[in-house]
Each structure stands twice: as structure tokens, then as C-alpha cells.
Design a protein around this nucleic acid. Structure first.
Lengths: 343, 343
DNA sequence: ATTGGCACTCACCAAGCATGAGTGCCAGCA
DNA sequence: TGCTGGCACTCATGCTTGGTGAGTGCCAAT
């Protein structure tokens, strides 16, 4: 039974193709790997692999390249995640340790991931819904407007400006605000964001009638932030790496860039990731639900403080990608940044 | 004296080249513009223009293309800013009016600018140093850490986490924090950020000795935010437009993308703009001090609330760019977003 | 099941050639 | 003096052609 050797051939094809970016033929394969068989045998194996849909020939007299299914098999069964080198690990930790706040952590993470993998890196801000409320602050702005600030356990700060239609400048209102502030905080602090929205709903019954209108407005604004979570943000770096590997994209990198600019798309992609735990997930080529990204592969992982994951990060690159190395980098960065956030 | 006609020829060359992206020859020029003279005359004019360094021929038997100097002359003396169409103006105002907070304003602005000009748009966040302090909030996080939140008049929120080394959980500390909070706010609110830093420096003498250490730490952190202003951010959109106009870049768009990812560079560029007032500024090709951007042109403008400008925005595109239209779009967007912020 | 051999295919490259847009220059004309 | 028409020349571009070689599929032999 030659099943094993056929897989070895597939592995060799993937490795060579990733390295050279050229279709690999039976002969070239023999020179670079000691398979212990002749070229003709390899050719037979290749024919079978092609029949199984794992490799394909771009044209008649060319070598073979892996298909999406071929990469999938390679990732699932033929590769081992290559550990990072010592210096690399060190670089990761020292770079991330230098961050001063959450923004800075995210910023450094995304740049790090991009330079480490030499691909496009994407990092989602720690998601609101999975963290909980640390503090809510109400700040009057000018005569009638109110700034509502929400601070989460992940150190994230959300803000909204609210037109109250009331005069907030007089001392009376100030006292009212102070009382509202403590009420709102009492009803939400420590709860997850989803629960906090519920807590807000129950508040109006317990409150000075004069303040009810204002409270309702505040609650509405906060609920929007809490529930709709529309403010989820992603940051991106390394887009210039796309053009370097530009030949890997059949048509052009244009559609890819467009898809990447649609942050909503990225959020969807990273969102599904966090549900799968902290394992590194790989989505290859057409497995990807978004048209613009069907020529790319995504390597992603969840990350976050402690045991509850709060967001996703990952890299986007051509399907012809060094999966073992990339997966190692993504995993390592996710681990380190989680550690930082756990503090 | 044929000076006028020569300039008319230059104008025609720029217009045609921008439209067709192909070197324009004497004959093609005559077909598209009624100059009232013969091809030979145009050729003579072209020869002069070439001698003056305003146009150049990519190779012997090709038409001419404008040089950076040619574009410069065109922008300065030969073009009029083309006003936007009614629907365009309407689209701008309705889109920007829908923004819910500062982040959203900036986000919408940059996307709008990108789609309007079909180029890469860049928007700088309203700069800290030019706005003033609205409110400072101190929030204990866990046992010993303190979150310092700075809210500016432009609605921007800056945050820093501080390791105090003290126990902040007990009621005693809470009272101290409350007092510190009002002291700090008293010393800073209403001042410009630069002045606020000064106000903080004078505070320690007036404060409960027990709180001095903490205050010093807070002041140090705030001063860093206030003075170093290192948190200046830019957002970008429309990078996919770069590849569309990819043929315009001699080598590749790679270096351009790299330069654009260096936010520091963009900040420098936009920074010089705000000093020039709200007029639209154009920087063409090699006029640009940054290597990666020497094949691009920048069209920028300051924007901000009221009479004091607080930040810059603009677009980056190939030197072969429709300057009149782009300048009109940049100016219009800057005006509208300023109006929104002035509220 | 594996191998060596062989005929065949076809992308790729270089050379040759035609095409035509565009130029510079010059002599004639207003 | 400035404009024009004419003419010879240049040279990038595109097409065709033929040669080359990597790579394949198949088959008979081991």
C-alpha cells in the first residue's frame, strides 16, 4: 500500500511550492527530497493525487501545485507547528512588555504579527460583550450635552455624546447627575456587558422621577453600545506585504485590499474564531465565505485575559503560505498578548 | 509673444494625460483641444516647455508627460478648483451628520474622502495640543492600579493605566481620590493641554502630603500624554484605490504602502499642513520629503472646530491626479467636518 | 508495485519584422 | 519674427515564428 508515500509526495510538493512559488515537477521533487523511489513512481502518485483533487496542474506540461484541499490535508495531517526561535520569542515579549496602554498593546501586537509573518496582520480590539463593566462616567459638556463614558475590565473606553435637551449647568442638575452616576454604576459595575444592559432596564423604577427622562436617554445610549457592540474595531498592518507576494494572486490584490478594508468582514471572520477557543484556526482559500478573500488563507486565534477569550487576531496571506511557521507565530503572539492582558 | 499659448499647451497636456494616462503627442492634442494653431507650432512649444523642465518625454518617439514642475505650475496658475456637484455636497453633509461620536466622525470622514476622490484618504485625529481639557477622571482598577482618563474639548478620550503601589481599595483612599480628582480638575479644566501640564506642576504644594506621591505619579502620566502628544493617531482608507492606479507608479506600490503604514510619517506631513491654515495645500512628487512618497502627490487641508485648526486631513495619490477635482473634494470635506466639530 | 524509456505537449523565450505615433528640422510664407 | 507644411528618422509596441526544455502519460519489463 503506497498511501503513506503518496502523502509524503504531497507534503514535499507543498513544501517546495511554498518555497519556490513554482509548480513542482516529478524530477525537481526527487532532487530536493530523498523519497527512495524513481521519478516515474512519483508521477504515478501525482496522477492519483490529482484524481483525488489534492493537486492540480496549471497547464499540460507544467508541474503540479496544491489545491485548497491539498493545503487543507497538509495542515491537518502532514505538518507540525514549527516552534519559534529563541530570539523571536524574546523579541515578542520585550516588544509587548513596553506597551503603555490598551491602544498601544493592540498597535504593537498587529505590527509585530505583520513583521513576524511578513503578511497582513489583523487584530480585533477586545470585544465589549465578553468583558464586563468597570466604571461608567457622566460628564456634562457645555449647556445641554452629556458625555457618557464606559470603561471595561479590559481597559477599553467607549464614549458617546448625548443631547439631553435639559439645562445641565445649574447646581441642581449637578446633584442629580451625581446621584444618577452612582445609580448607574451600582446597577452595572462588575456585570458582563450583556447583563449590564439588563440591569439598566430595571433602574428607572427606583429613581427620582425628575431624573427619569435623563436616565432613560442614558440607558438607551449605553444599551446601544453594550448590545449592538457596533463599535468593535480591528486594526491592520502589513498591507505592503501583500504586494510583495502579489504574484500569488490570480487576478490582482485589489479585491483583497477592498475586502480587508471592510472591517465588518474582518470582524465576522475573527468573531467566529473566538468561539473556537484559543486554538489556532486555519481557513484556506475557497473555504472562506467572502468573495474577495477566496484566494487567501487566514490563520487566526482567539486571545484574551485569563480563561475567557475576548477577541481574535490573525494573519491574511496567499493560500501559498508557510503554514507551520505562520501558525507558530500566530499562536505565540496570541499567547503573549493574552498574558499581558491578564495582568 | 507666445507665452500664453505655451501655457495653454501645458494645461492641455496635463488635462489629457490625467484623463488618458498616456503620453500626449502634438497631434492627439490638436484633436481634443481647439488651440487654433498647427501641430508643428505645438511641437515647437513643446520643445520649449521641455527645455524649461515642465514636461518630459519617456522615450524618443513618444508624447510628453508633465514633470513635477509642470504639475506645480498647473496647480498654481493654470487650474481653477472645480466646485462639487449638488448631490455630492448633499451626500457629504448627510453622511457626516449621521455620526454618533468622534471616532465615528473620523471614520466616516476618511471613508467619504476615499470614495469621493477614489484615492487613499488620510485623516488625523484632532490633535491634543491644540484642544483643551474638558475633564479628568480617576478610576481605581483592582487593588493598586489606577486608570487616568483625559477628556478633551474635541470629545477625544485618552487613557493611561498607572501602577501606584498603594492600596486603593479602602474608604480612606477613596476619599483621597475624590479630593485628588477635584484638585486635578480644578487645576486643568478649561486650559489648553500645554497650559494644563503647567497647572499640574504647581499643584503638589497645595495638597495633602499623604497624597503627594500619588499625585506626582498621576501628574507625570498626564504630562506625558499632554506634552509628548505621542498618541496622535491617523486613520486611512482607500488603499485599494492605489492598486487601481498602479500603473502610475514607476516601480511598484509596495514602497508607497510601506510609507503610508508609517503613521509617524503621515503625522509629520499632516502636521505641517495645520500650520498653514485651512487652505488646501498640494505637495507634488519629489517636493515630498519622504522617499516612499516621492512618486505621489498629497492634497491636504487643515480642519477643526471654529477658528483654531486642530488637525489635518488629505488624500494621497499618484502625481498624475485630477488636481482640481481632488482639491475641491478635500476642501469641501474639511469644511463640513469642521462644521460638525464646531457644534 | 516499481522502473526505465519514449513520444508528445506546450509554455516560454528570443529574434525578426511590420507598424505607426511622434519627433526634430528645414524651407517657405504672412 | 512667428507660423506652417513637409519630410526623414527614431523607436516602443505587437505579432509571428521557430527552438528549447521541463514535464507528462503510457507501456513494456522487472
Amino acid at each position: 500500500m503506497s498511501e503513506d508515500r503518496r502523502l509524503a509526495v504531497l507534503r514535499a510538493i507543498v513544501q517546495d511550492y511554498v518555497e519556490t512559488s513554482e509548480p513542482v515537477g516529478s524530477k525537481a521533487l526527487l532532487e530536493r527530497h530523498s523519497l527512495g523511489v524513481s521519478a516515474a513512481t512519483v508521477r504515478n502518485d501525482m496522477a492519483v493525487l490529482e484524481e483525488e483533487g489534492l493537486i492540480a496542474a496549471p497547464h499540460t506540461s507544467a508541474g503540479r501545485i496544491p489545491t485548497d484541499a491539498g493545503y487543507r490535508l497538509f495542515v491537518d495531517r502532514l505538518s507540525t507547528v514549527k516552534p519559534l526561535s529563541g530570539p523571536e520569542r524574546k523579541a515578542i515579549s520585550t516588544l509587548l512588555d513596553g506597551a503603555v496602554d490598551l491602544d498601544d498593546v493592540v498597535d504593537r501586537t498587529v505590527r509585530l504579527l505583520a513583521s513576524l509573518t511578513r503578511q497582513v496582520a489583523v487584530v480585533q480590539y477586545p470585544s465589549l460583550t465578553r468583558s464586563s463593566v468597570r466604571h461608567i462616567e457622566l460628564v456634562p459638556l457645555g449647556a445641554s450635552r452629556l458625555l457618557v463614558v464606559l470603561i471595561t475590565t479590559t481597559g477599553r473606553v467607549e464614549q458617546r455624546i448625548l443631547e439631553t435637551g435639559m439645562d445641565l449647568a445649574d447646581p441642581e442638575s449637578e446633584r442629580m447627575l451625581a446621584s444618577l452616576r452612582s445609580d448607574v454604576n451600582g446597577a452595572t459595575v462588575g456585570k458582563t456587558l450583556a447583563d449590564a444592559a439588563g440591569g439598566l432596564g430595571e433602574l428607572p423604577t427606583q429613581v427620582d422621577p425628575a431624573a427619569r427622562g435623563l436616565l432613560a436617554a442614558i440607558a438607551a445610549e449605553l444599551t446601544e453600545v453594550l448590545v449592538e457592540q457596533r463599535e468593535e474595531r480591528v486594526v491592520m498592518a502589513g498591507t505592503s506585504n501583500l504586494v510583495r507576494s502579489g504574484e500569488d494572486f490570480p487576478s490582482s490584490i485589489g479585491p483583497v485590499l477592498e475586502a480587508l478594508e471592510e472591517h465588518v468582514v474582518l470582524l465576522k471572520l475573527l468573531g467566529t474564531v473566538t468561539e473556537q477557543g484559543s486554538a489556532v484556526a486555519v481557513r484556506i482559500g475557497a473555504e472562506n465565505p467572502y468573495a474577495g478573500l477566496q484566494t487567501t488563507s487566514l490563520v487566526t486565534s482567539g486571545y484574551g485575559a485569563g480563561s475567557d477569550l475576548v477577541a481574535g487576531l490573525g494573519v491574511v496571506g496567499p493560500t501559498r503560505m508557510d503554514y507551520p511557521t505562520t501558525m507558530a507565530a500566530v499562536r505565540a503572539v496570541a499567547t503573549y498578548v493574552s498574558r499581558i492582558l491578564a495582568e
